[in-house]
């Protein structure tokens, strides 16, 4: 029978095939085609950065506005896209499950990889652009940015798995998800730093792994003078538990999916 290594290679091939397929269906082959995968988040990030830089004060709580917006919007777009693409993902792509080697987990993994890669490349390009134009300083601690991003990617994957599996089982969730995503903006960490609010209320923000991730990313960009507040162990355990629940629900969701 097949060895474990062969099985991993098979799933790798399936995820790759799903990614290519997704790129074709979503962007087609017209004009710049695949590049829209990066172009879309770039326009969003750059657009918001330009608008905020021009209409708001150059510094907020001592932090430069452009860099602050970019470090918040990249994780936020990544999360929003991952979750948005996960809603009813099984129903939309159920036909692919016609092939036995394609599993629900592959469907989500391929979408998450695309969104994550797209927003990371877009974020890097916007950052370089802002640095070249003198609106942003190079990061103080690149390592901490990487750690924050790694945590955030794991969090996005966990959310995508959870939402995909739950939206398949409940139509109600599908309807309330956009409201939920909008209302959760304050606990995304994109617009505030924890140290800006009174000490008494900080714990509420710190419950959210996304806030912790943003604190790490901003701590990496601005250095200690931005007073980032985060805990590696807390974020790792909450993200880990979410990931496990998401995985378990997704692996068990095959039975609920009706393939036409």
């Amino acid at each position: 029978m097949q060895s474990l290594r062969q099985l991993f290679m098979l799933q790798g091939r399936v995820i790759w095939a799903l990614m290519m397929r997704e790129l074709h269906t979503r962007y087609g082959r017209e004009n710049i085609g695949y590049l829209w995968m990066v172009g879309e988040p770039i326009m969003f990030c750059a657009g918001v950065a330009i608008v905020w830089t021009s209409i708001r004060a150059p510094y907020e709580h001592g932090l430069p506005m452009t860099a602050f917006v970019i470090t918040g919007y990249v994780p936020l777009t990544m999360w929003r896209h991952c979750v948005g693409r996960a809603v009813k993902a099984f129903e939309a792509n159920g036909g692919l499950l016609f092939h036995r080697q394609v599993t629900p987990l592959d469907l989500i993994a391929s979408r998450v990889v695309l969104e994550v890669v797209g927003s990371l490349i877009a974020g890097a390009l916007v950052m370089f652009g802002a640095m070249l134009l003198g609106f942003m300083d190079p990061p103080q601690d690149l390592g901490l940015i990487y750690v924050g991003l790694a945590y955030h990617i794991a969090f996005c994957l966990a959310c995508a798995l959870l939402i995909a599996a739950l939206s398949e089982r409940s139509d109600l969730l599908e309807k309330v998800i956009s409201v939920f995503m909008y209302l959760s903006l304050p606990i995304s960490g994109a617009f505030t730093m924890v140290s800006w609010i009174p000490e008494h209320y900080r714990w509420i923000l710190l419950l959210s792994p996304s806030v912790q991730d943003c604190e790490m990313i901003r701590g990496g960009e601005f250095g200690p003078q931005s007073h980032p507040i985060f805990s590696y162990t807390y974020t790792a355990s909450v993200t880990g538990v979410l990931l496990l629940i998401g995985l378990s629900l997704t692996l068990r969701s095959r039975r609920f999916i009706v393939v036409n």
Binding site: R13, W16, A17
Partner: peptide
Amino acid sequence: IDNLRFICRIYD
């Protein structure tokens, strides 16, 4: 063709 490519990829 794209369907064919997809099937080629998943079945190697």
